[in-house]
Design a protein around this nucleic acid. Structure first.
Ligand SMILES: [Zn+2]
Ligand SMILES: [Zn+2]
Ligand SMILES: [Zn+2]
Ligand SMILES: [Zn+2]
Lengths: 138, 138
DNA sequence: ATACAACCTCCAGTTACTGTAGGAGCAAGC
DNA sequence: GCTTGCTCCTACAGTAACTGGAGGTTGTAT
């Protein structure tokens, strides 16, 4: 039961591995509620804030964009609903990741091919440069 | 010999599949030279500009960042140099792509695992939400 | 009393564009 | 000659998610 009554923004930052500016950024974007303030205007946080920020950070670590995190936070607050919406958000995100991987893989294969075609002469003969330049044959 | 003497920015845009604003953006960023102007201030382009822009676009299609494109353009103008520097830029870029693919693949596998663990009950029991929330066990 | 750390607000910068506002120029048709 | 409509011009805001810094105040420790 020996819990700190409240935390300063720097404490919260340390606890969650978040930059102070980022915490303020989340507040501005509505991901965290407007923090209580001391008489002199400093932000005060409690356990619930720490948990909420940890949730945000974990979501970000899984790559969810902030819009998705916002939705996940709302859903998480409604414990009795079915988790369908949660699943859907996660699957949409997974599909997006798959798309990115596919794009990068195609790029990688093309770039690798181009690099492999270089026979290390002068720029005039370089196949890499040739690939980039417009083809003026006809 | 029936070549157009000069092109308007819209013509260049059409020829290269580039947005007009993007061409101006490249000029501002030094990737394209300051365009000649008509008496009324409109930009004029010639074949060399079309080629340069095509080179930029092709480089971008291979994912090179603009800083790299700038270097590649400089190198391409110096035909007698060895192409070492070109190769190096390309390989650095390839390494970056590989890094991104690795990051995304790790993310994908973790996210996929999390999604698979959901047994479709209420939010209170959802393993996805549980994964995102901080663990209060001990 | 005096450092010095930590806090505050506001704003610029990152990447590579994209879109828009507000205005001027140019070609075609009448 | 005039209007219509397309293209062009500059300049700036917005995108995603922060990050860093300037300039100023507050809290704490010596
Ligand atoms: Zn080479
Ligand atoms: Zn080469
Ligand atoms: Zn489910
Ligand atoms: Zn679930």
């Amino acid at each position: 039961m020996a819990e700190a009554a409240h935390l300063a923004i720097g404490d919260l930052a340390r606890l969650t591995g978040t930059k102070v500016n980022t915490i303020r950024f989340y507040e501005e974007g509505g991901l965290l509620p407007q923090a209580e303030r001391t008489a002199s205007g400093r932000r005060i946080y409690r356990d619930a804030d720490t948990k909420r920020l940890a949730f945000i950070r974990q979501s970000r670590n899984l790559g969810f964009p902030l819009d998705a995190v916002r939705e996940l936070l709302t859903l998480a607050d409604d414990a009795n609903q079915p988790c369908e919406a949660v699943d859907r958000i996660a699957r949409v995100h997974l599909a997006e990741i798959d798309r990115k991987i596919a794009d990068l893989s195609a790029l990688r294969s093309e770039l690798s091919r181009v690099i492999g075609s270089c026979s290390h002469g002068t720029v005039a003969d370089c196949k890499i440069i040739e690939t980039l330049a417009p083809h003026t044959d006809g």
